[in-house]
Structures are given as structure tokens and as C-alpha cells.
Design a protein around this nucleic acid. Sequence first.
DNA 1: CCCGGCTTTGAGGTGGTTCTGAGAATCAGT
DNA 2: ACTGATTCTCAGAACCACCTCAAAGCCGGG
Lengths: 226, 226
Amino acid sequence: MTQDSQAESPRLLVMEDDGELAGMLATLLHGKGYSVDVAEDGQRGLHLALSRRYNVMLIDRRLPAIDGLEVLIRLRRRGVTTRALMLTALGDVSDRVDGLNAGADDYLVKPFEVDELVARVRALDRRFLDEAQLVPVGDGFLDMSLHDVELPDGRRVALSRREFELLRMLAVRPGAIHPRDQLRSRLFEDTNAESIVDTYVYYLRRKLGTGVIRTVRGFGYQIGAL
Amino acid sequence: MTQDSQAESPRLLVMEDDGELAGMLATLLHGKGYSVDVAEDGQRGLHLALSRRYNVMLIDRRLPAIDGLEVLIRLRRRGVTTRALMLTALGDVSDRVDGLNAGADDYLVKPFEVDELVARVRALDRRFLDEAQLVPVGDGFLDMSLHDVELPDGRRVALSRREFELLRMLAVRPGAIHPRDQLRSRLFEDTNAESIVDTYVYYLRRKLGTGVIRTVRGFGYQIGAL
DNA sequence: CCCGGCTTTGAGGTGGTTCTGAGAATCAGT
DNA sequence: ACTGATTCTCAGAACCACCTCAAAGCCGGG
């Protein structure tokens, strides 16, 4: 599908129910070189944020279907670390505090100045790390668009959807330990088997060699670093 | 104060020329568990930020000697990445944009709500903690994210879950004496053996050497502090 | 509809971890 | 130095996390 997503432009997700404002934001940010998706309610926003990768999300505090704050909480609970800029109504301080505690990286009070919005988005975007096309795993590279791995000897091994998702999760934050429970709830939501993660780690190791994914007994799995 | 406040609590640097406000901030944040240094002008602020390590800096936009914005720019140019929260005067939008472009991670408009300041500082601090964090233990370092210890000779020793929990407990408040009963009730809730803590101290000493954890006979164990 | 790959499930084995207890060593006070 | 209390050492057993892998279920393409 999105073959041409080689486009280097940073991706934004705007969750805003006011169509006019949303359109304005999209136009504005597009003009600044961003690729913008718009979700008009929390439901769609949540879905988009889970299924695609964004550099920054703009989330209106109040949204239909699922409230903006709730969307953010669910995303963070699922391990999504995408930078979030929360848009709040004027004057409600506790709202902002709630947003920050829910995992927002910043917020902006409506109505806001255009300059400022752009500056904030830029600031958050600068902090954005991943979203690379080729992510190093072990001595090879995970190709995000082809869903395969290029090994140091040049061989390419294809990954199944689940294998890819698991490896991506690990690879995006190299060095970090990913608790097995977190991996399980994020990747295998409605699965009963306790050892589903283990099994896929096993599959990956069989394909990539045993040196890539490290087990941290009692905690989880880790990639890269050391 | 006491020289042992080394790695104990998160460290903040407040650059603020209004003595009253500075004092208020220091008291407030100290009450929230932070260790706070105050610089009354840009000169000193710059010097402190360069010579010591802080988790978060609060910088007043306007400062004597060297302007706050200028301080931040110089720090960033020198490669200092410490999170910076800029305090700006009311209503000056371009000021804030300048601040963010200069490398500020966030800003706050004066006058501000106390809750909000704390929430912002917490948010920034959390971001800081996510990036590794090494806590000194003896002559080595406890790596909080990797759950292991880096010894002075470069060797790394892995810790089991319990070993890690115990060592972290001791390491987080260096110099403090941790009563053995307190350790036992917190770490080994449902365990019968009276000497379970002793055993794990033994395991740790075997891995880290005998000089790291000190026994305070009749009371408990202690780490760091001479 | 049938085939082949993907996903899920669970059983069995392995080895590190945790708990337990008991004797040896050490310490503080007399 | 003696003595009782405290701490250290350590090994064995129970436990549990993890690995391996086969088989059954699922789903989509031919």
C-alpha cells in the first residue's frame, strides 16, 4: 500500500473534532512540511495511533466517542511512546495537570498562537528518535518497509507479521528492557497462552541467530546494547 | 549541607534573580523531594550548569549578568542536554517561541500555579529518568535499566530480581541505614526465614565484593557513605 | 476446496533463582 | 577471656522462568 512513504516528512496525527480547526491545522502543518492525518473522534484516533507510526500527536482534551485524556492513557498503557501535545480549554489548570500526568509531553491552551503551535510541534519533533527506515538489530538491520531483516552476510530473512511486530518493538528502543507482560499485552492482546512471547522470541532467534535478542531473566527481553 | 546528598534525590537548578520567588521555589521543590540549587544571575547559573549535573533546570527568561535565553543557548552549544524549563513573563508569545527554539524543553508563564509547576518539573524529570540512569554503588554503578552492575574494572555482573531489588533499595538512599526488618517486610513479604536478607546481602557481596554493603550491627545495612 | 504458511496452544525439559535452616564466625558487654 | 547475641556462610530442596518444539487451529491464495 503506502509504498511511497519514503517521503522524509515527519508524520503528525491530529485528533480534533472541530472540523474547521482540524482543517486549519492540517493545512498549516502541511505547509510546514509535515504529513498530517486527522481523526475526528477518540475512537479513530486511538486506532490510527495504534496502527501507524507518528512523530507527534496533537490530542484535543475533549473528544467524542473516547475522551482525549482517555485515549492518551490507553496509548501509554499499551507502550506507545509517541510524543503527545495536548490541546486544552482555557483556564482549566487541573485539566493540564491531568494531561501531563497521563503521559502528555506538552500542552497548549486554546485559543493559541499559530507560531507557538508550530514551535511546540517542532520542539517535540526534534525529540523524536525512531521512525527510521532501517533500524539496527544485532549486526543486521530491520527494514521497516519491507518487513524483513538484512543480515550482516547479506542474506535477507522475511518476517511474519507477528515476528515483525515483536522485533520492531524491541528494536525501537535498543538497550531498554521490555517486560514480557508488556510485550504480551501490547502484541498478543487477546491470546491465552502464557508463553506466546517466548515462542516468538524463539522463532526470531532461529531466524536471526541467538546473539540478537537477550533474555533478562525475571524482567523481559532486550535488544542491542551490550 | 551534608555532602552525602550525592545521588539521593533528583537535582534541580533554579536560575532566578527574584530572591523571594527563588526561595519559595526552593522550599516548594525541596518539599517535593528534590535537591535544589539556586543561581541568582546568569553568570552563576551558567557556571553551575556546566560544572554539576542536574536533572532539570528552571531558567528565568530575564536574568542579570547574562540573559536567561543566552544562558540556555550557550549551554546547548556546549552540548549540555539537561532538560530546561523556561519561565517567561505573561503574554509575550515570541519570547516563548524563542525559548523553545533555543533548546528549552518546556516553558511556564509567570505567574503560574504551584501544582502546574510541579507537574511540569515531574514530567521533565520523568523524561530524564527514562534515559538510563546509573546509581553509584561502591566504586561501581548500578544500572537501573539493565538491572546489572558495572564494576570499576569494567566487568558487568547480572543481578537476579531479588538481588536487584535489595541493592536498589539500599542504593537509592546512600548513607541511610536500612533496618533489616524493614528490608525484610518490603522485599520478602511472605517469607518465613528470618535470615533471608542476610542471605541476599551475602549473595550481593559475593558478586560485588565485600566493600560495598556495610553491616551496622544491631540495626541493618548501609551502602555508600564512607 | 485444498494447500501452505502463520499463529496459538501446551507439554516437557533445563537451569537459574529463591527459600530454608543450621553450623561457623564474629561482635559487644561483662 | 567468656558468653550470649548477632551475623555470615553455604548447601540442598523447592520453585519457577525460560527454552524447545510439535501439533492443532486458522486464514488466505491458488
